[in-house]
Design a protein around this nucleic acid. Sequence first.
DNA 1: TGAATAGTGTCTGTGAGACAATATTAT
DNA 2: ATAATATTGTCTCACAGACACTATTCA
Lengths: 275, 275
Amino acid sequence: MNQYNSEEEFLKNYDSSAFEKLSMTADILLVSVSDQEQSNYRKTNKKMMSILLVKRHDYPYKDKWCLPGGFLNASNETLEDCAKRVLKQETNLENIYLEQLYTFDDIKRDPRMRVVSTSYIALVDKNKLTNLINENASWFDVVLYEENKNSISITLDNGTSSITFKVKKILREKTTDRYSFEVVANADIAFDHSIVIVSGLERLRNKISYTDVVFNMMPEYFTLGELQQVYEIILNKKLLDPAFRRIIADKVEKTNKMRTGGGHRPSVLFRYKRK
Amino acid sequence: MNQYNSEEEFLKNYDSSAFEKLSMTADILLVSVSDQEQSNYRKTNKKMMSILLVKRHDYPYKDKWCLPGGFLNASNETLEDCAKRVLKQETNLENIYLEQLYTFDDIKRDPRMRVVSTSYIALVDKNKLTNLINENASWFDVVLYEENKNSISITLDNGTSSITFKVKKILREKTTDRYSFEVVANADIAFDHSIVIVSGLERLRNKISYTDVVFNMMPEYFTLGELQQVYEIILNKKLLDPAFRRIIADKVEKTNKMRTGGGHRPSVLFRYKRK
DNA sequence: TGAATAGTGTCTGTGAGACAATATTAT
DNA sequence: ATAATATTGTCTCACAGACACTATTCA
């Protein structure tokens, strides 16, 4: 058993070097929704989902794109602290929505050494962004295409370069619908970050229906049309106006502000209503 | 930038000691459903949810109960491998349902040193259990009581001792319904494992409605009454028979076997049907 | 005026909740 | 016969899907 008589005594004599240690990182999938200007003055701006990627300038994966992330400062930082620090550093953003996604730990996911990565998803209203971003970082518009129920192809575009990768859903259990992703084609994303991106977007798509996370990507005042567009982009499908309005009716409150100037009927500005 | 000309060259010269390292563990919430014998021969056995706990015989948290878990072998093991190894070691079980739950990483969660723990939930049909279990391990029946929407009290009983602890849901964001748990009262559970238990049971309760995970806790043949009981225990509420049967109708298939001998109408044995 | 979006009314079908009724056994 | 559970029928109500209709603006 144990030769010590109290926890204190035990701790004083504890030798932590007995266990093999490893490094951890926090990686962040920062998601936002951006406007695409329209030529026709009457048309509303199309919205696109976009994520932040950083170009690597060092080995490993030199010149590939990866999610913003950084090593955990093990002595005085939680993984969430670490994610916040990285986010602040790359985007100058603070106080944004951050949620733990999944811990990725393939033994060879980092060729340097064993690194376990806990990924976070962060949501932000793009209007809150200043220009103060790491020069190696860049927003990529996301186009998600489901070839079939199990095969997803994602194209990322930052205006300069376009990246496409493809993953497959793999059933992992006989007895249930638990699955994981497998990369089928990927030339430009570093590490296992293509999987992180797909998992994160899928998680977001699920959560949007039973939580209020969307409002983290909205400005304070928005029209129901804008809100609906954000839902449509994340769910990757059209919604019917009346049905949508019924569903979100008790999550928003009408204000006396209006959005005018669109060459068509003005729309009422709403605001998120907590329950 | 970088003085190397290829990834290979870089890796050969890489010094991994530049980063602070830490230890990781995998902890497992093993959940099952057990029968409680009834005195009246006509009555069906009541079912209870139960989880496996291990009594600690060393510091820290000497004599407290904790989830089965173990340190990650960083050089050649994934966290899931580690969870499987621990499970095999404690229960002699293999090939059971295992799913990553959450990564807990409070800086002081382990008083010895910084230890980040990734928790897994495992589901098993209790009939598959042999007696080959670590002598310090014990099954505890779970009684979950929701005082109100944000306050949950859990009582665990293994026939010999009874443990109760209480946690509160804490809203973490203004803008959304993201929350975490905070321990209000706990005298007998080691580490942050009380939080792991609550999170795990909550996750199970959510997943049971939109996945087929239940069938991992069922034997091959079961009656719809038994299946319904398992749902009721996990959801912690009564369900209406006809509604339940409608919902699971396309997940199960009738067999020509019957369960008889209960002093009442026999019931048809069903089997899980994959789609 | 007409192109474009904003916003509402309403019909229909599906499916959950509720309760009642019938079926079948071991003692 | 009776207690107990198994199984099915059916009514109602809420709500999502679908489509049509009205409202309002600005070049």
